[in-house]
Simulated assay, not measured.
Amino acid sequence: MPSQPIVIVLAAGKGQRYLASGGTTHKLAASLAGSTVLAHVVSAVEASGLQVHIVKSAAGDGIADSIAAGVCATADAAGWLILPGDLPLIQPESLRQVADALARHTVVVPHYRGQQGHPVGFGKACFDALSRLSGDVGAKSVIQKYRLTDEVFDLSIDDQGLVTDVDTVEDLSRAEDLFVRAINQA
């Protein structure tokens, strides 16, 4: 069994909001700074040193179905970091911080300047609840269950990539601007 959590990258959605906003391809295949949105996410996971499992299809249409599929496919993992595939600016160090905190907590919820972000980390104790998820509500019910028992750790991380998702063409343009600004500041 792996000693580190596995990052479950959710890539099974239809990207309907992106297409409705004028996108000509699926949002995860959209070009961002010379690569695709999804490739940026996978690259960050690989740079973090954590294992990755990409969910490209699930039995149902909802995000919770994708989470359940990913967790069931990696049932021997020490835990899971649930990362939507549309967060191309996520930093490898942020993934490490969530993984490190998960070694001491059952659920880890990252925040950027007070806004809840991703990836949310879930320990092995969450397997049953995560594997039974279905629909389009994500894992909020699992977080709420563990919050009632004070087993949720809210982790503040200074990474705008935790909350910068690509749901529309305008979001992609904003992400591109942020990406270029970060390169110029480095």
Results as ranks from 00 to 15, higher is better:
85 G>L: 10
103 A>N: 14
81 L>D: 06
61 D>T: 11
89 L>M: 12
77 A>P: 00
106 T>D: 15
61 D>C: 00
76 D>I: 01
105 H>N: 15
107 V>N: 14
75 A>M: 02
91 Q>R: 15
58 A>L: 02
60 G>W: 00
67 I>W: 06
84 P>Y: 03
90 I>P: 08
94 S>K: 00
104 R>K: 15
92 P>T: 04
103 A>V: 12
106 T>V: 15
71 V>D: 03
90 I>A: 06
84 P>L: 08
94 S>V: 01
90 I>D: 08
61 D>E: 11
69 A>F: 00
77 A>Y: 01
88 P>V: 09
73 A>E: 10
86 D>K: 06
57 S>A: 14
73 A>Q: 08
70 G>K: 03
105 H>K: 13
73 A>Y: 04
65 D>G: 01
98 V>H: 11
90 I>W: 04
96 R>V: 10
87 L>F: 14
89 L>D: 11
58 A>Q: 07
87 L>Q: 10
95 L>F: 07
68 A>G: 05
90 I>K: 05
96 R>T: 00
107 V>K: 14
73 A>F: 02
71 V>P: 00
74 T>Q: 14
80 W>Y: 09
63 I>F: 05
95 L>E: 04
79 G>W: 10
67 I>A: 09
91 Q>M: 13
58 A>M: 03
69 A>Y: 01
82 I>W: 06
62 G>P: 04
106 T>R: 13
86 D>I: 09
96 R>C: 09
85 G>E: 09
91 Q>S: 15
97 Q>K: 14
62 G>E: 09
92 P>H: 07
86 D>N: 15
107 V>E: 13
68 A>D: 04
74 T>L: 01
62 G>I: 07
96 R>A: 05
107 V>G: 14
107 V>W: 13
76 D>S: 13
84 P>G: 15
71 V>E: 02
94 S>Y: 01
106 T>E: 13
74 T>S: 12
62 G>R: 07
91 Q>G: 11
68 A>H: 03
65 D>H: 03
80 W>R: 02
107 V>T: 13
62 G>Q: 07
85 G>N: 11
60 G>S: 03
74 T>P: 02
105 H>E: 15
82 I>Q: 05
94 S>T: 03
81 L>E: 05
56 K>S: 12
83 L>A: 06
57 S>C: 08
102 L>S: 08
98 V>E: 11
62 G>H: 07
64 A>S: 15
69 A>K: 11
92 P>C: 09
83 L>V: 00
83 L>Y: 04
77 A>G: 03
84 P>S: 13
93 E>K: 05
92 P>V: 04
102 L>T: 12
76 D>P: 00
77 A>W: 00
106 T>Y: 11
89 L>V: 12
96 R>P: 01
70 G>A: 11
68 A>T: 02
57 S>N: 12
106 T>G: 10
94 S>M: 01
56 K>L: 02
71 V>K: 03
100 D>V: 12
105 H>W: 15
57 S>Y: 06
82 I>C: 09
77 A>M: 02
65 D>M: 02
79 G>Q: 08
82 I>M: 06
75 A>G: 00
96 R>D: 02
59 A>G: 00
69 A>G: 00
75 A>Y: 03
61 D>W: 03
101 A>S: 15
94 S>H: 02
83 L>E: 08
60 G>F: 00
71 V>H: 04
100 D>I: 10
100 D>W: 07
62 G>C: 10
81 L>P: 07
84 P>M: 07
71 V>S: 04
103 A>R: 15
71 V>R: 01
75 A>N: 06
99 A>Y: 14
87 L>I: 10
